[in-house]
Design a protein around this nucleic acid. Sequence first.
DNA 1: TCTGGAAGTTACAGACCGGTAACACCCTAG
DNA 2: CTAGGGTGTTACCGGTCTGTAACTTCCAGA
Lengths: 196, 196
Amino acid sequence: MTDGVVERPRPRDRILETARDMFHKHGIKGVGVDAITEAAGTNKMTLYRHFESKDDLIVECLRANASKAGAMWEAFEAEFPGDKLAQLHAWVRKAAAMLNADGRGCDMANAAAELTEPDHPARRVIKELKEAQRERLVALCRDAGIGQAELLADTLSLLFEGARVSVQTVGTEGPSAQFVRMAEGLIVSFRGTAAG
Amino acid sequence: MTDGVVERPRPRDRILETARDMFHKHGIKGVGVDAITEAAGTNKMTLYRHFESKDDLIVECLRANASKAGAMWEAFEAEFPGDKLAQLHAWVRKAAAMLNADGRGCDMANAAAELTEPDHPARRVIKELKEAQRERLVALCRDAGIGQAELLADTLSLLFEGARVSVQTVGTEGPSAQFVRMAEGLIVSFRGTAAG
DNA sequence: TCTGGAAGTTACAGACCGGTAACACCCTAG
DNA sequence: CTAGGGTGTTACCGGTCTGTAACTTCCAGA
């Protein structure tokens, strides 16, 4: 055997992963770079050798999140190859699971709430990544044979987005508890009006 | 005439109003008490004579917001006395107007995103006020003769909540642009299944 | 074994934060 | 006119923030 133990990731990856976790849990302005480097088992100088600034680190974290989300979509396709409708239902189930995962909302939405400067570098990538997500959901609805694919996709994403912030304010017993029922009902309703 | 000029509000009210505006625009952690007092035309000592702490000021701002929202409900009743269905449609229009008002989301949701400490005093009042809002919308749907009033109210509030964060991330041209169509469609759909 | 680069350490700069103390001022009610 | 409370001013405390400088240590590859 060439390697019995798990290799410890390089400092840059440890910093990125730790920052993602801490930003998610405590918010961006609620975490300092000292706390990140300490939790990552490294130090501030190493962080600033790999990232230009805290803002740069924030942007990289958001991109890493989006890349993880991208993997989720590929998992849908792998599980139900070609069956777009099944993938859409898988999306609903996955979304519902996220609601109960923890009491925190979407990292991008939370970041947008915190970083209010209109020209903050993170705002560009948040918009860009959110639009990409929307495109994916629209394409999924369209390929599933839904007539008004854009409208269904937008409705579903607003419902999900709303459910995530609702969890953050009133908890999982609030309106978000009905998310699956709402989403499934919408899909049924839109399928009824599908245009061949 | 007893008073020709508009009376300048007392320092406490100026601080409260200024803080509400600045918290809304720049986020809670993005504004310091110095900036608030300066913008309110007063000083830090006066702030701390009227509010125990910044956290206390935050809570008072949230309560003031909720009280303004309460006035909105009374305006609905005043405009369409007894006509609950008309009031529900007025709520939809008002919600849509808020989406285009500015690019910032709900102050309570934003505050919940920023104040992550589980026992932060603001979290209690956010939950309390959001639950009161939900009750009002449920009651309105029920009194409008909708069968599944809770489900419609929860769906509408998730849609609205989602639209507000969507505006914050991708702007008014995104999914939130369809909010009115979604909401009106839902109301029609739920009225179709109304139980006498 | 030597070397070069990545990583760690310590200290610091400069700014901002929430919050307080001490004191001067002004305006109004009596 | 006077007394007193609300207000304004200045200075300060201890802490935290992002970001940098100068230096040491470690480790892999030649």
